[in-house]
Design a protein around this nucleic acid. Structure first.
Length: 400
DNA sequence: TGACGTCAAGATCCG
DNA sequence: CGGATCTTGACGTCA
């Protein structure tokens, strides 16, 4: 069971992606953006390697206007060497890559030009995967599309258009249940007619279940049969509901307890799991640590150095508790550790704790701050105390 | 016609 | 002027 995350990494040096607008899409600009993005991708893959993250979804925006006539570059030839190097990195470290065109790539549309663009977009995705690593286990995940008032007919339209796709696309294409229109049962039906493997999405199934409301596990098992050995290990998507957003919206972080409950219920099912979550790689590391078979307290200490001020800012009690946990060097209290972290981040901002954390960090900066900076800091702290300023404006001074 | 989702670019605001 | 914050872009479907 491998864990991965989608598209970008949080807090990792030089892994940001650039894009450009249509009116700036000159050849020169496109070349520069692609060059930048390939650097970022290589850095992300390298980060994944170091952190034992073996699944990664590559952003569809790696090549700006990748499937649009706006971009006439033969990027796969121009950057052949770079793709080759990334491919080597991916293969040597057993990293499985994937892509996921968004809700705007609709293969079953009633509008022919939309279908044409969808086909072109899928061909772009396949070309990109093939440029890096042509192995059939690297997948492009697609939703079925619209319903257009007649779902049966719309599903048939998907099958017809699927069959017309070029082999290089079909080789990588897999289909997924969505949160509004096509539930897992309908996607499985479409899989029977196309032969495309099925990615089961846990949150989409919660929001948009099949009529009989069969369990996630029973569907994961069924979906497993759609993956042939060339397709690699079965993949699923795991995410959690964001409590303050629309049904189907992804949470900020994966909750340690919910995740491990899910993993334990899987039993003998061992799919690769793509996380869809705001904090990206941070949750991937968290889930990998939670499942670690050869644990070491150093893993948690490394995590603690990232999270400690976040916890201190919310709750001194949780902060003290985790410090206590980490004192026993021969243990690995991974669940207690992340559970407490999840608890702290869920808390409302408390002024006393926040000030304490800010002062703590200020301690490190004080020595190198000028008189003027010290005055400015005191003023900000006072304004925060009297509700004039938000916590962020205080924290921002550390960036200066 | 706007909401949906995503995230960087672009525009504007503030001190 | 620089940094923070708001708006736009790019995509298709559906209410």
């Amino acid at each position: 069971m491998r864990i991965g995350y989608a598209c970008q990494a949080v807090g990792i040096y030089e892994t940001n992606f650039k894009s450009c607008t249509r009116k700036n899409a000159t050849e020169e600009n496109l070349l520069s953006v692609i060059n930048h993005n390939l650097n970022a991708l290589e850095n992300i893959i390298d980060y994944n390697r170091k952190n034992k993250i073996h699944l990664f979804r590559i952003t569809s925006d790696l090549i700006p206007f990748g499937s649009s006539p706006v971009n006439q570059l033969k990027w796969w030839e121009i950057f052949q060497e770079r793709f080759g190097r990334i491919g080597q990195l991916v293969r040597e470290n057993d990293i499985r890559i994937s892509m996921h065109p968004g809700q705007y790539t609709v293969l079953n549309s009633t509008d022919d030009t939309v279908v044409e663009r969808a086909v072109a977009d899928l061909e772009y995705h396949a070309k990109l995967l093939e440029s890096i690593d042509p192995d059939q286990k690297n997948k492009i995940i697609l939703h079925i599309g619209g319903a257009y008032g007649d779902k049966k007919k719309a599903m048939e339209c998907f099958v017809t258009n699927y069959q017309k796709l070029e082999e290089a696309v079909k080789k990588h294409l897999v289909i997924e249940n969505d949160d509004k229109i096509y539930n897992i049962e309908e996607v499985m039906e479409t899989s029977l007619k196309t032969g495309a493997p099925v990615v089961f999405d846990v949150l989409h199934h919660q929001v948009n279940p099949d009529k009989e409301k069969n369990s996630a596990n029973s569907w994961i098992k069924q979906c497993g049969y759609t993956w042939k050995s060339e397709d690699g290990v079965q993949k699923i998507h795991y995410s959690e509901q964001n409590p303050v957003k629309q049904p189907g919206s992804h949470s900020e972080t994966i909750t340690a307890e919910s995740f491990m409950t899910f993993i334990n219920e899987l039993g003998s099912l061992q799919p690769d799991i793509m996380l869809e979550v705001k904090d990206k790689n941070l949750s991937a590391v968290k889930c990998i640590n939670l499942m670690e078979e050869r644990p070491n307290i150093l893993m948690l200490e490394k995590e603690w150095s990232r999270y400690k001020y976040l916890v201190l800012e919310k709750s001194q009690n949780d902060y003290k508790y985790i410090r206590q946990l980490l004192k026993e060097k021969e243990k690995y209290p991974v669940m207690e550790f992340y559970k407490t972290l999840d608890h702290a981040r869920f808390l409302e901002e408390s002024k006393g704790d926040a000030l304490n954390a800010v002062n703590h960090v200020w301690g490190y900066f004080k020595k190198q701050a000028s008189e003027k900076e010290k005055d400015y800091y005191q003023k900000l702290i006072q304004e925060y105390g009297s509700d004039k300023k938000q916590l962020n404006s205080v924290k921002n001074i550390y960036g200066n």
